[in-house]
Design a protein around this nucleic acid. Structure first.
Lengths: 330, 330
DNA sequence: CTGAAAGCGCTTACAG
DNA sequence: CTGAAAGCGCTTACAG
């Protein structure tokens, strides 16, 4: 690969001049510019990004941290972030932490060494402190979907309102014994969804039945197991609110395997409206979280932050939740 | 952030010595080493990666190209690649091309500028030439899942055998009118799966019925439409082989919406065994492609290639396909 | 075992 | 508008 001096030689100018036509900020004589451009083309010259960054430039790369790439809400998130990043000339590095704090630290240490201009974290949990250091040091970053306990830039859903919406709809359809299959409680959004469920029931004058509530369920396979337990109750629930679509799908499978039908015997409500919600039979009634748009927004705000174009007060963007009525609730 | 000279000053040595303890190849007096390490720790020093790479090092990053992040086979692929990359101290950059050759070129141009040591492409289609240049220039890369028309490093499934397996199983279960819902034909693997279907039918003495074959279907929504067409045939199929799980899921939905049952009225066979295959009702019978392992293998081979540890003859690794019998075929 | 020097490929004041 | 020089933060022969 040729370097800037090869180009300079071929064009009969100094490397400084080549650099100037490359960057386009400082005026260059049109004729010389022409010659330089021709030389660049002839040599198929690409500036060495490392050298540029070393001179104080930005690398135009964003690090995206996901707790688990197999979680099917993230494809849309990635797409929203990537599309926005590309629009601004940025590239996205995806890092999968598997909810492992040590792995996350390893990646952060690596990427901070000028390999990345900022971070987007979808990995926040209660009680992790290493992300707070970034805030102290003013390294650009933003939380997405999940937020941290401390006030920091974030783009999230109104999870409380979404859970209210879901529960109120089930109540409105005449259900009274509404079970909850919830996620891990050290992820704040599941606390919020739990609160929405509780408050909506209270508002409807329905007493909370602890037997109907199962926490710390992760995906569809343990969602299945949770539903098996609920079906073994002396008095079965007549509806189930699962706080993510895979958990809802697991519940549907357990109900069908028990010889019952959804929604005829038991109604099932999901959360997120991820792609699998439209792949199941019956089509899942759920609460939509606009992942693409949220990813795009977070990326937009991070880039503004990186490029120093914004006021530095941390701010939380809250997207509204929306009920999507399909076929799994009667 | 402090640099190597700060560390040198604090430790009372030269930057060269600091560099030497950092790299650990050249012996350093244990006492000085001690002092340097202490200084590094005290200053929380992290070497600037740009400078290191500029001096001729590797950046230890791999670029992964996906045709579409929303395709649900990729999470497992990413995980396999990431885990392997991490084991070797590499990081993974994921680029989503949306099957857009221009976008792909943009990313490649960007990343080649020393931001990446090699590429993994899951984006090969017939007739794209820009990837061949990389081969000419000896830039490390490997194809995964899809292969290119030219001989190049690749890790793929035995798609032909997989399609034979699927079709033979349907035939063995007594089906005779076996429809095919296939993907875009400019992706070679769908040609291979088509060939497997054809040959297996021929071997069973079943004549090919063009009315039962629909090509160029991408995902579950157009899989649904394809099935609607098949159901409108004067003589309906008694089984459907869809060459990906989402297409199979779309077909199941169309069958159920038409008031028929799977597998009682029509059997449905998928392909890939991606996560959604275990999320549907009935559980999908399909052909497994070991995505995690294939991703891991491709990553392993690419890194060997990057680090110059392998003989340079292009080689294609073919993984065997495996039938996974669940509930959607009777 | 260690330090001073050169250089990786750029950019940017500085001087003209 | 343009060139020569310095320097970004490292590493690595070279000399000791």
């Amino acid at each position: 690969m040729s370097d800037i001096r090869d180009v300079a030689k071929l064009a009969g100018v100094s490397p400084s001049t080549v650099s100037r036509v490359l960057n386009g900020k400082i005026p260059v004589n049109p004729d010389t510019k022409e010659k330089v451009l021709a030389a660049i083309k002839e040599l198929n010259y690409q500036p060495n990004a490392m050298a540029q960054v070393l001179k104080g430039g930005r690398i135009n790369t964003i690090g995206l941290f996901l707790p688990n790439v197999r979680n099917l809400v993230f494809p849309a998130v990635i797409q929203g972030i990537e599309d926005t990043a590309k629009k601004h000339g940025y590239i996205v590095v995806v890092c999968n932490t598997d909810e492992d704090v040590e792995k996350e630290k390893f990646y952060i240490e690596n990427l901070r060494r000028r390999l990345v201009d900022g971070f987007i974290f979808c990995t926040a949990r209660a009680g992790t402190k290493h992300l707070l250091e970034l805030q102290d040091e003013g390294f650009p970053h933003i939380y997405l979907i999940r937020k941290s306990e401390q006030l920091a830039d974030a783009v999230i859903l109104d999870n409380y309102a979404g859970a209210c919406l879901a529960t109120e709809y089930l109540v409105g359809q005449g259900h009274r014994r509404i079970a909850l299959i919830n996620g891990p409680r050290d992820v704040l959004l599941f606390q919020d969804r739990f609160a929405g469920y509780k408050d909506a029931l209270a508002k409807a004058g329905i007493a909370l039945d602890e037997n109907l509530i199962i926490h710390d369920i992760h995906s569809w396979d343990d969602g299945y197991q949770a539903m098996v337990k609920l079906l073994a109750l002396p008095e079965k629930p007549d509806a189930v609110f699962a706080t993510s679509d895979p958990k809802a799908i697991g519940a549907i499978q357990a109900i069908v395997d028990a010889g019952l039908a959804v929604p005829q015997d038991i109604s099932v409500m999901g959360f997120d409206d991820s792609d699998p919600a439209r792949m199941t039979v019956p089509l899942l009634t759920t609460v939509a979280q606009p992942f693409y748009e949220m990813g795009a927004k977070a990326c937009e705000r991070l880039i503004k932050n990186i490029e120093g174009k914004r006021n530095m007060k941390p701010k939380i963007d809250v997207f509204p939740a929306e009920l999507v009525i399909r076929k799994s609730v009667k």
